[in-house]
Design a protein around this nucleic acid. Structure first.
Lengths: 254, 254
DNA sequence: TCTTATCAGTTTGTCCGACAAAGCTAGATT
DNA sequence: AATCTAGCTTTGTCGGACAAACTGATAAGA
């Protein structure tokens, strides 16, 4: 057993990884700002002194990580990782981990309550207008479960946005992505489901307007409990999201 | 303007993307289970009928997405996306979006409270033993801010684990990754900071053992408020995480 | 017999060179 | 001036190549 390390650990990361890391560093440090060009593949080849195939592998890594993207003409540029893309990846991970709807429900309850609390405190006029617009459109399609489900998801996104807390916005997204696709089944399967949903949204918006936190929390709870009751009519909370989707509408996921 | 679409949209996704999608589909569908081999690059070349460079670009995409990895001998195999890796990516996104510590703090408060509530309700003997082990080690390094900060982060991870809610575990991770690196600065900068931290953990563990939700929530709040007071001595809650790290310890990020 | 050394075959990481398709640019044309 | 066109650039893909690392099996040594 050697006692005194004479040499430091040799860096054996493959070249494509080093390329990716090098570019990532520049972006994270802010030396390359979102929207700014990274350069062509040929330029990167010249700068890093590696083959174009190697550069391209590095580019794929960053692209998938959301740090760079290609603009309309396919040139590389740095970009702000979109919550949505990352959240999609997380949602997938949750599915693979076979989480249950109970876990999803519990966490969503926590996050949506936090979301509405933030919205009550800090929603701007613009936020309120957006929510009102959504509510109006929702009321118009109360009999159409698919359209209503989509607007419901949007309503909650807008609420998170109104909380002015981007960390919260991000944190709620993965769960929401798995949670809300079920809304369609539920609204469609419960008589008056659509009307109840719109009513809840109405009260939520009202609470935000009146800056009434208690009412906001109350209606969020009711809204989600409604979801839960509806869900339990068609499936068990304790089965995995994966299996439940398999049996219901998951095939429609494009 | 054509009125009747004669043809459907042609799929023009690049080949490497199709390769990635095809493999991803098999994994998500469960036809390839985590741990199972994907095959060698040569085999994939044969199956997809594309060049090895193309296959390799597709592999990079999946690797970065956490869906496949290479085992000890660098062979490809499907895997369960690790929360940690995904969370790291999200943390990075949060930094780039220049979120503030106020957003981080608020959301962490919500999630840590939910975490302790879950732990109080559902922690197993094993969870409690792990927490106790952590607490013991923490008490031993109360004067060493770096070591203590690391154990603090671990304590909260263990608590989330004890909640038995994987969605929550995942949701709290990105914020925690940004939140906890500051602990070291704070514990080091506040007299008795280490002792207070260990005391809070002690009460938290005690609350979980006694299944006392109220105490758990109370001490979580105190614990985080302590962090906040300490933080405000060295920086402003309303500056971005990015800038704050820049000025303090971010350079040490490897 | 059990261990060690050797050696051929795979597999990955990297490189080189090449080409078609799509975008861009700038000069030529109307 | 607006449009068109031809040439250049860039990306996506391909084929082939080679060194290093790893595998597995066989031969040599204790």
């Amino acid at each position: 057993m050697p006692t005194t390390p004479l040499f430091r650990r040799i860096d054996v990361a493959p070249a494509y990884q080093k390329v990716a890391d090098a570019i990532e560093r520049e972006i994270i440090n802010g030396r390359i700002k979102p929207g700014e060009p990274i350069g062509t593949e040929q330029q990167l080849v010249a700068q890093f002194g590696v083959n174009r195939s190697t550069v391209r592998e590095g580019i794929r890594v960053l692209e998938e990580g959301g740090l760079i993207r290609r603009d309309s003409s396919r040139r590389l540029q740095a970009c702000l990782p979109r919550y949505n893309k990352l959240a999609t990846r997380l949602s997938r991970a949750l599915i693979l981990h076979e989480v249950t709807f109970r876990e999803l429900f519990e966490t969503s309850m926590t996050l949506e309550v936090a979301s509405v609390e933030g919205a009550v405190e800090r929603a701007t006029e613009e936020n309120i207008a957006e929510l009102a617009g959504n509510l109006e459109r929702s009321a118009a399609v109360v009999g159409n479960p698919a359209a209503l489900a989509e607007l419901d998801a949007e309503f909650h996104v807008l609420m998170a946005k109104a909380s002015q807390n981007r960390v919260l916005q991000l944190a709620r997204e993965p769960a929401a992505q798995l949670f809300f696709p079920t809304t369609e089944m539920i609204v469609g399967g419960v008589p008056e489901g659509g009307a109840r949903l719109v009513e809840a949204h109405h009260h939520l918006l009202d609470a935000i307007k009146r800056r009434d936190k208690e009412a906001g929390v109350l209606w969020t709870r009711r809204h989600l409990q409604d979801w839960r009751r509806g869900f339990e009519k068609i499936a068990s909370l304790d089965r995995s999201v994966e299996h439940t989707y398999m049996e219901h509408a998951y095939a429609a996921r494009q």
